Computed example of a mutant assay.
Amino acid sequence: MAYLTVNDGVKQFATFRALNGVSIAVERGEFFTLLGPSGCGKTTLLRAIAGFNDLSSGSIMLDGKDLRAIPPHKRDIGMVFQDYAVFPHLSVFDNVAFGLKPRKVPAEQIKTRVAEALSAVHLQALAERLPAAMSGGQQQRIGLARAMVINPQLLLMDEPLSNLDAKLRIELREEIRDIQKRVDIATIYVTHDQEEALAISDRICVMSAGHIEQIGTPQQIYGDPQTLFVANFVGTLNTLVAGEGLSRLLADLGLGRAAAHWTVRPERLSLVESGATAPVGAVVVSGTVNKFTYLGREAHVLVDTAAGPVVVQVSNPALGAVRNPGDTVSVLFERNALMAFDADGKRLSLEG
């Protein structure tokens, strides 16, 4: 039995159904991420677990207890918000201690637990400071320490890094993951940032339009997407254009099955010398460079081919590796790099 389960969760708002039969299972100590675009239902699901919005129907169980029967303030859940939600008039220490006082924790224990929580988020030296004079990253650490200090059964995080700059987001997401591993609290994390989800999650639940598209490890979600939505939303995707050029490419690769969509990731394509012989299970297609984008550790080359325009990702491009618009190039397509989807966006086996 999983530690937290949501079964067939439905949330209806007047004329809008925000959740349409959502079911998830989260294990003890797991970092479980809800990933999807704005309006997909991920925050609605998180708020239902927290008790801020009850489900219209369905069940939520935490460690054998029916959460829907427990008032929000008695659910023993820590919550970290997007907007920090710190009290500007209270010191860092008093902000973190805030949730312990209603629980009648003795003063000495409060001191010890707050000190431990501040140490975990590297703020022990700033205990007496007021948050107003602190950076966004430090304020978010206060929110994290306050959520953890109550020793909750479950930690919920609603886009906690979205208000921070890119560099700080990367630093803090690593710290959040390290802290979560150390304290071993089951955590549900909401984000729309695919890279963030891939970097910190044990498993990812990709959502769209109130339902679940796929649940899996980061490797499964990125490397083996089961729907076209997941393939498009997580990572960059080339969609090949139907026509004679694509038909010839598929025939040369021995891919005879019918599919509504044929796709390939940019990093699964490569540029090869003109006239190069393709290895077994691959085909070389000539094309013309449309655009070259240098990104430091990689470059993206947009190539017009008979199967449609494709972006080819070049890793560690040398200083002299610039391709100019109009250059003729050869693109290597490998059979096992292609992904096929039906008209409903469901993944198809290449062996079918």
Rank of each mutant, 00 (worst) to 15 (best):
A117G: 09
A50S: 03
K346I: 15
T217F: 02
A251L: 14
T187F: 02
S286G: 07
F13I: 05
G243V: 12
T293K: 14
Q194G: 08
F13M: 11
V206I: 11
G137Y: 00
I212G: 04
D224N: 13
S270Y: 02
A199I: 12
R129C: 05
G136P: 08
L271V: 07
P317E: 02
V230P: 08
L348N: 10
A48W: 12
G39T: 08
L67S: 05
V206N: 06
C205L: 10
A107V: 07
S91A: 04
L123F: 14
P225F: 12
T15K: 15
R323I: 09
D63A: 04
L332W: 05
A147K: 03
H89M: 06
F341H: 01
A25K: 01
P317W: 00
L118R: 02
P218A: 02
A107Y: 00
E298R: 14
L249Q: 10
H300A: 15
M79V: 09
L237Y: 11
L35G: 02
V26G: 04
P309G: 14
V301I: 15
G254Q: 02
K42S: 09
K104F: 00
A132Q: 08
S286R: 15
K346S: 13
A69D: 08
E108Y: 02
C205R: 04
Y222Q: 05
G287V: 06
V289C: 07
R323Q: 11
D342L: 07
T305F: 12
D76K: 11
I188R: 09
L348E: 06
S59C: 09
G254C: 08
V272I: 07
L45H: 00
L338P: 04
Q226K: 13
L228S: 00
L255P: 01
T191A: 10
R173D: 11
H211M: 15
T236M: 15
A299M: 02
D304N: 15
L144T: 00
L295F: 09
V22W: 01
K291N: 15
K104M: 01
A133S: 13
V86M: 03
D8E: 08
Y294N: 12
V284I: 11
V206L: 07
G245E: 01
V303F: 06
F229Y: 04
N336H: 14
Q226T: 09
E244T: 13
Q109L: 06
G216V: 02
S135K: 10
D158G: 08
G320F: 05
R182Y: 09
A97W: 05
V311G: 12
A321M: 04
Q153N: 11
L45N: 07
A307R: 09
Q124G: 14
I204T: 00
R141A: 09
M339V: 13
G64I: 10
V285E: 12
V331H: 08
